[in-house]
Every structure is written in structure tokens, then in C-alpha cells.
């Protein structure tokens, strides 16, 4: 029994490596941001873009559409966030007997710490800020360069901005 507990520190990193989505996405490139301008009021335009995009993409179990504020720049951001926490406990480690159970539970428990990670993991986003002239808006459309999907997603946000600032 003691040996099982001693083996745990060895097993946990192995298991958690399997579910580390952060490392997976860090390997992906990002598309160059696209600058846009239009007319409107930040919050109303953010809500309009959110409503247009909701349900068209960002439908995975680990994904949610959000309206949030960028703490660094103060921009209002409409984004698709892919966070490991949204799916709940997901370790698919299947071991043998009690040792397997203990390793699984320990891996999920460690994973729950990452699930509370306050960072966002954007897949595509649109950052909004008031322009220099009264009533104007500046925006930045951005997307993760996932093969075949990235450019379309950046365009999705650019189109939504265009439609919401007419």
C-alpha cells in the first residue's frame, strides 16, 4: 500500500501531461491582428457582436463566448475562450485496481487547480475601444491560426464588427 503512495508522484506528471491543453495550444501560431474602424457605442456593439457570433462557432465542450475587459489595455473584448475548466473533470486515465483509482483521483485533483486558472485562452477575439473622434470605434480582430479555421474566424469577427457598426 505504501509503495502505491510512493509511486504517485511519478504517475501524476505522466498523467497530467496527457491533459495539458495549454502546451498544445502554445505550439500553435497566431494570425496577424486586423485593425478595423467603425461607428457606435462600445457596450452596445460588443453585445451585438456577441449575439451574432453565439452559436455559429465556439461550440465545443471546453469553449464559451464571453464579453470581458482586457485588464492591460482596458479594451472591451468579445471572445471565444477555450478553458480546461469548462468541461469539468476530464482525466481519461484508466489504471488497474486501487493504484489506478488513486492515480486517477490525484491527477484530476491536480487538474482542478488548473481549472481555476483565471487566464483566458482565446481562440478568436475582437477587442473594442473608443476612437479618437466622438462616436467612433477602433477594433482589433484576432484569431489563433488553427489550420483552415483561423482566417475564417478572424473574418467572422471582422464581418460581425462591420454589421454591428453600420
Amino acid at each position: 500500500m505504501r509503495a502505491l503512495f510512493l509511486a504517485l508522484p511519478l504517475l501524476v506528471p505522466l498523467v497530467s501531461a496527457c491533459v495539458d491543453r495549454g502546451a498544445e495550444r502554445a505550439a500553435l501560431d497566431t494570425l496577424p491582428p486586423q485593425a478595423l474602424t467603425g461607428r457606435g457605442e462600445t457596450v452596445a456593439v460588443a453585445k451585438c457582436i456577441y449575439d451574432r457570433v453565439l452559436g455559429t462557432d465556439c461550440k465545443g465542450e471546453f469553449q464559451r463566448m464571453l464579453i470581458t475587459r482586457d485588464a492591460a489595455t482596458g479594451d472591451a473584448v468579445v471572445m471565444c475562450d477555450a478553458h480546461p475548466g469548462y468541461g469539468g473533470a476530464t482525466s481519461n486515465y484508466a489504471g488497474f485496481g486501487l493504484a489506478g483509482a488513486i492515480a486517477h483521483i490525484a491527477a484530476v485533483n491536480e487538474q482542478s487547480m488548473r481549472e481555476r486558472d483565471p487566464n483566458r485562452y482565446p481562440i478568436f477575439s475582437l477587442a473594442l475601444r473608443p476612437g479618437k473622434a466622438e462616436g467612433t470605434l477602433e477594433a482589433t480582430a484576432w484569431a489563433l491560426n488553427e489550420p483552415e479555421k483561423g482566417p475564417g474566424r478572424r473574418q467572422l469577427m471582422a464581418d460581425a464588427f462591420g454589421a454591428c457598426t453600420k
Binding site: G88, A101, V108
Partner: peptide
């Protein structure tokens, strides 16, 4: 919400994640 000022009233799932994972292994889990 920091942008829209909407207020979310949420009934959170607060079961310890480890208990949820252990449930698959029965009472001992």
C-alpha cells in the same frame, strides 16, 4: 460582468473534483 454590467446569478457545482473523479471507482474512490 466587467463590460455589460449584467449580473449573473449562478448555481455552481461545488463538488470537490477529486470526489467526482473517485465516484467512478465506487465508495472507496
Amino acid at each position: 460582468n466587467a463590460v455589460t454590467q449584467a449580473i449573473n446569478l449562478t448555481c455552481y457545482n461545488v463538488t470537490p473534483t477529486a470526489v467526482q473523479a473517485g465516484a467512478a471507482f465506487g465508495l472507496i474512490g
